[in-house]
């Protein structure tokens, strides 16, 4: 984009998508912000406070305008801290598991062995399963304490089957979600591994590098970039995990921030509170994104 003309042309060319994005994002966001300052509960016998009656804001008795009370209520709710803790634990653990096992699997799949192509395709499968379906399968076929496959294994070793969802609800959710995201990490890291220069491997061989040092000094630095990309993308999606918690009914002990917003809005019918929670979640996500982007920026530079 060197000349004025190409720049103008470029701007013109992207303008439809920019407008589209603005509508897509700005409209819901503004509505959420608007609601978050209202005393708006669907169970209110006189629901005059809503988007459709903006005049309500100027209501003489000031019944609708909530100020920051929705925010303060949400932020001081003990459930908020628990949900935030769960969110962070979920994101952290799934990232750790998927990046670590993704790396190991990628290293394995980078080796030549019989049927590698087939195994690679199978690897992607979990990523393509809908979260709801995966949650149901894990809950009923694998982790069920009576008829699940894990229980069967435990029993065949004469052990007490683990009642996953009762005693380790968060761990169960983490395992299910990690299972879905490992293939993604594997795939990205594998492509990156395959782009590792063959002559570099040979140079390392000439330098007499033992396998572990080779991994540590040559492979890992090469993988840092794709790893940061994996972390960024996964974080965005993991902050929004919902289906697994909803389906397995582990909301009480393992509910995260999105789930809390859902509880405010669709269970307590408190639209104002839910909107405030939503905005808080957005702000927190942006803080996380800010740090991630800085980390990635540093890595992409190097």
């Amino acid at each position: 984009m060197a000349t004025q003309q190409t720049r103008t042309l470029g701007k013109l060319a992207v303008s439809p998508s920019v407008l589209m994005l603005l509508m897509w994002m700005l409209v819901p966001l503004s509505m959420t912000i608007y609601f978050s300052f209202l005393r708006y509960n669907l169970l209110d016998p006189n629901p005059i406070c809503s988007l459709l009656t903006p005049g309500a804001l100027l209501d003489a008795e000031n019944r609708c305008l909530a100020g920051f009370s929705n925010y303060s209520y949400f932020l001081t709710d003990p459930a908020f801290f628990k949900a935030m803790g769960n969110s962070l634990k979920l994101v952290g653990w799934v990232l750790a598991i998927s990046v670590a096992s993704g790396t190991l699997l990628a290293l394995l799949l980078d080796q030549a062995f019989y049927g590698r192509g087939f195994v690679r395709i199978m690897m992607i499968a979990p990523f393509l399963v809908m979260p709801t379906v995966s949650a149901l399968v894990w809950q009923n076929m694998l982790m069920d304490p009576v008829s699940g496959f894990f229980a069967f294994i435990s029993k065949s070793f004469g052990l007490q089957p683990i009642d996953w969802f009762t005693y380790h609800p968060l761990a169960s959710v983490i395992i299910m979600v990690a299972w879905q995201w490992v293939p993604f990490a594997t795939l990205i890291l594998l492509t990156s591994l395959q782009s590792l220069d063959e002559e570099q491997k040979e140079a390392a061989e000439m330098d007499g590098t033992p396998p572990l040092s080779y991994f540590w000094y040559i492979v890992l630095p090469h993988l840092i970039r794709p790893m940061t990309v994996v972390i960024l993308i996964e974080t965005i999606f993991l902050l929004n995990v919902f289906a697994e918690i909803y389906v397995t009914g582990t909301a009480g002990p393992a509910g995260n921030l999105p789930f809390l917003v859902y509880q405010y809005g669709l269970i307590a019918n408190d639209i104002g509170g839910a909107s405030a929670g939503g905005i808080i979640a957005v702000i927190l996500a942006n803080i996380v994104a800010f740090f991630l982007m800085r980390m990635i920026g540093k890595n992409l530079e190097a």
């Binding site: 220069d197 002559e199 570099q200 390392a204 000094y217 090469h222």
Partner: peptide, 21 residues
Amino acid sequence: AAPSKRGLSMVFQSYALYPHM
């Protein structure tokens, strides 16, 4: 013998330098 045990050094056509070092 392993390459590193032969007492030989190699200079590659594409240099094969370690890019992050």
